[in-house]
Design a binder for these strands. Structure first.
Lengths: 196, 196
DNA sequence: GTCTATACGGCGATAGAC
DNA sequence: GTCTATCGCCGTATAGAC
């Protein structure tokens, strides 16, 4: 059985993701949890405290998901980068709650909470960059990736491709573009750009 | 002298961009315009009507900006694509109101208005794709761009790079990454991938 | 077209009983 | 820890004078 406090946070993440900070009322959160509005105050000081703790949990979950994905990949650097792209995009589509929550409040934080949010999110990013940089470096050493480019060039391009793909998939979500074909197109150009 | 109606829309775009739909009150809009709250109802039926007309104006402005940029570029396809990337990113940074407004409500529309918004925004996208496809096709005919890739492959990769760059620049906005150096890194990998 | 006055509901938040 | 009751405020929206 889940504790009320956790249920509040879970419900909050869903509602904040769907309707934003100002668009989500404490009444809606209480309804979703199955308690009355004032009971929320037994667990949190106020709405802002609920939100900020939800952001912490969302941030940790998002970065853990990516970290686990990176560490699960086996094989050549090329294969790792290729399947990571595929899995990350698939995860963002299926388990899209986390990434939606994460990006919503990273890019469009509620007025007044900008700094508190960015201080939570900036921590996790660098660790992931370091993991990927290792993979790229190994790919260069083993002769799969060109050494005419620096590790940072390849890393930034890869991250740009990841971000752009996520971006485009949201953008074209109501269009006819097939995800598998789309990824193949994007990857083939990237791979021509970085292969040895 | 600007008409009140236009001033309302201009103020609305700024406030909606900064604080979202639910986070922007009619009182705040009226204050910014310099009138009293009930006077808004002489020009618009309700808040939703103000917002939807703001979205129409924002969409048109955003796509016009991009279209004008594309048409202004001269020279080889490579040069056009390169400087378009640079200009688009610069415009998104300086004149970032339009792109922020556009993406905020494309990706995170207020509850209940999802379909109305997407029906406004989907129109303009295809025209821009067609303009870029022409440039890419010409680049292939003139031997600058590889013919081992299809026009669509190159187009999607280019758009992914644009989207990813915009994404990353917001993402790393508080970090130390220099924009010029960043664009050079991204472009060099893309160019290796698509050159003949 | 703009104003003052006001209606009405929902909001975040608190008091206090159980 | 949860509830009922309630507070004060601010939200959208309307009525009606000028």
């Amino acid at each position: 059985m889940m504790k009320t406090r956790e249920k509040i946070l879970e419900a909050s993440i869903e509602l904040f993701t769907a309707s934003g900070y100002e668009g989500t009322s404490l009444g809606a959160i209480a309804d979703k949890v199955g308690i009355k509005k004032p009971s929320l105050y037994a667990h949190f000081k106020n709405k802002e405290a609920i939100f900020l703790e939800a952001v912490e949990i969302g941030e940790a979950g998002y970065h853990d998901l990516l970290k686990r994905m990176i560490n699960e990949q086996k094989g050549t650097a090329a294969h790792i980068l290729r399947s990571l792209l595929e899995e990350a995009v698939a995860a963002f589509e299926e388990e899209h709650l986390l990434s939606q929550f994460y990006y919503r409040f990273l890019f469009f934080p509620p007025s007044g909470l900008e700094e508190k949010i960015s201080s939570i999110t900036t921590q996790g990013t660098r660790r992931l960059d370091a993991l990927l940089a290792d993979i790229i470096e190994r790919g260069q050493e083993e002769g799969e990736l060109t050494t005419e480019l620096t590790v940072e060039q390849i890393l930034r391009s890869y991250l740009c491709m990841l971000g752009g793909t996520d971006f485009d998939i949201r953008y074209y979500q109501h269009s006819s573009v097939d995800r598998k074909a789309y990824l193949e197109m994007i990857w083939s150009v990237f791979w021509r750009g970085v292969k040895a």
